[in-house]
Simulated assay, not measured.
Amino acid sequence: MQITAALSRVAGQDLTLETLALGPLRDDEVLVRVVATGICHTDIGMRDSPSRIPRPMVLGHEGAGVVVSTGKAVNRIQAGDHVVMSFDTCGTCHSCVSGKVAYCSHLGAYNFAGQRLDGSTALSVGQEAVHSHFFGQSSFATHAVCHERNAVVVDADLPLELLGPLGCGFQTGAGAVLNSLGVSAGQTLAVLGTGAVGLAAVMAARIAGATTLVAVDTNNARLELATELGATHVINGAREEVFTRLRAIVPQGVNFALDTTGNLDLIRQATQNLAPLGVCGLINTARGADLSANILSLVLGGHSVRGIHQGDSDPQRFIPELISLYRQGRFPFDRLLSFYELADINVALSDMHEGRSIKPVIRMPT
């Protein structure tokens, strides 16, 4: 079949809208008509990287849509189902079978290789192969091929144009608080960076009952929104020294710090401003940079620094939980969304990169 997709052909350049051929499904695959897809900073990072992904490739990994058809080995999903697509996994490694799917041993092959395990791709234009299966979906397109493992069935009464970002950004921020760090009532948390992931963490911390919740950013509008979503204190890093102010708020240090910025100086200072047995969680990869920490301080304080991937989430369980919280009015993630048409995807990418949009969502043409 013929589909329309946004291709990354040259690192650092705008995506190009092209008509592609989508080949037949494999037995374990699911064809989804994409209704909308969120944009994540990972999409921007991969667009700009000269080496992390093969090209040409269709990016996009926060897709939501309606199942068109399934391969004959698919049992849990059927045509007509509404689904949110998340990251893909092998389903058979130790991490997967023990319920820690965010740490699948084969995440690279299933999410960044741009092809099936046998080397084939689902897409082409003329005689040129186009790399597919980015995060098991490549959802910057009118149709996407995913697997039963990474498609989460959702209630059909919910607007699909809202739900795609639950598949990555929002589950990462909320999961970091509720799953990874296990923030509980009465504890203190500092969230460094109030983009989509950071604000999802703020909302989750309010749900968890954190009594002191400090949001840190340099954008006043986002800090105001953080207050509305549950932050008890905000710090504008462009106007005051962050950790002097943090210590004034929480003299003993915070139980948890969660970094979404990848700023190494912020991370280093966060580890030095933890309460005894405090934990600093890292979400932003900081482009693989090395981090130094004072070991004496870590040992005497019982401090931990934890890497967090996808909020330690099992999407099949956690996405429905987030939807339930949204229905209750406790996780109003829709307040973070801005909508764009597929033809304006490069505008949306620019708006996110420049901070004009917290979470852009691309609507597909009907």
Results as ranks from 00 to 15, higher is better:
residue 3 I to D: 02
residue 8 S to T: 15
residue 11 A to N: 02
residue 18 E to W: 00
residue 22 L to T: 02
residue 22 L to H: 04
residue 29 E to K: 06
residue 32 V to H: 01
residue 38 G to P: 05
residue 39 I to F: 01
residue 60 G to I: 06
residue 61 H to G: 12
residue 72 K to E: 14
residue 74 V to L: 07
residue 74 V to I: 12
residue 75 N to M: 04
residue 77 I to E: 00
residue 79 A to E: 11
residue 80 G to A: 10
residue 86 S to M: 09
residue 90 C to K: 10
residue 93 C to M: 06
residue 108 G to R: 10
residue 114 G to F: 09
residue 119 G to T: 09
residue 119 G to H: 04
residue 137 Q to K: 00
residue 137 Q to N: 03
residue 140 F to Y: 12
residue 140 F to I: 10
residue 143 H to L: 09
residue 152 V to I: 15
residue 154 V to L: 06
residue 154 V to P: 06
residue 154 V to Y: 05
residue 158 L to R: 13
residue 165 P to A: 03
residue 172 T to P: 01
residue 173 G to E: 05
residue 196 A to M: 00
residue 197 V to T: 10
residue 206 R to S: 10
residue 210 A to H: 02
residue 218 T to Q: 11
residue 224 E to S: 09
residue 226 A to W: 01
residue 227 T to P: 02
residue 229 L to G: 04
residue 235 I to V: 11
residue 236 N to Y: 11
residue 237 G to F: 03
residue 238 A to L: 11
residue 253 G to D: 07
residue 266 L to Q: 09
residue 279 V to K: 15
residue 281 G to D: 08
residue 283 I to F: 01
residue 291 L to G: 04
residue 293 A to V: 15
residue 295 I to N: 07
residue 297 S to C: 01
residue 300 L to S: 13
residue 301 G to A: 04
residue 308 I to M: 01
residue 311 G to C: 03
residue 321 E to L: 10
residue 325 L to D: 11
residue 328 Q to D: 15
residue 334 D to A: 12
residue 337 L to Y: 07
residue 338 S to M: 06
residue 339 F to M: 10
residue 346 N to Q: 08
residue 346 N to A: 10
residue 351 D to A: 14
residue 355 G to W: 07
residue 361 V to R: 10
residue 361 V to A: 11
residue 361 V to T: 13
residue 362 I to L: 12
residue 364 M to H: 05
